[in-house]
Amino acid sequence: MKALKELYAYRQMIAGLVKKDLRGRYKGSVLGFLWTFINPLLQLLVYTMVFSVIMKNGIEKYYIYLFVALIPWIFFSTSITSGCSSIIQSKEMVKKIYFPREVLPIATVTSGFINMLYCFIVIFAVLLVARIGFNVYAILCLPIIMLVEYLLALGFTLIFSALTVYFRDLEYILGIITMAWMYLTPVLYSIDMVPEELKNILLMNPMSPIIIAYRDILYYRQVPQLETLASAFAVGIVSCVLGYLIFHKLQKNFAEEL
């Protein structure tokens, strides 16, 4: 509780870091902030080409099917891959001044989250153009699932960012891990396509219920099953608490390790 209070006191620092990250990310590039949208759209293009034009899968409006899952996934994976080096990058500060170290991964995840929110503008635009439409009740569940995903991403980022301080290779290993993770999550395909034996393994993946929920809300226009929501919520909270505890334990030696 005390830790939360302290983090609240440091909200200005988090806000400052997020702003710096959002503003600085594409600094110097010609298209600048537009990259926030172009990057996922290009990924969407590639995957759509491969999985619906070359390998026909029979899913109606596959690009939308994919898009509503891909954007949340990109948020999760970039949180982990860029968040894991957040402590190392601010090494000078960590070594010299006190502030709750959690601030750094929180800022990275938050800026990724804001990027995702921007991308959702595009999602809504596409949904309108493609005449898929919205279900108001379903849309009301969207903030909940976003919050859950935020907690989950934060939990993992806390763990990985702390571990990376002690073990620098993790930064590179995580690139492969997140790629494998994506294929183990029903982002490119539907959970129903998975053979029964593998299905249970896939459902143990904490990202699976979240992606399924996003798709239910935006593509199928239905309120996600309570079961899916509840399990996602539980996983989110657990990962966040666990992540915090591990981080807290490991952060004591940051200044000496760096």
């Binding site: 006191a9 440091y10 200005q12």
Partner: peptide, 15 residues
């Protein structure tokens, strides 16, 4: 000044 003071845990209003 803003970023540095934020590192000391000050809010925007306080700064």
């Amino acid at each position: 000044i803003y970023t540095n003071a934020a590192i000391f845990g000050l809010t925007k209003k306080e700064i």
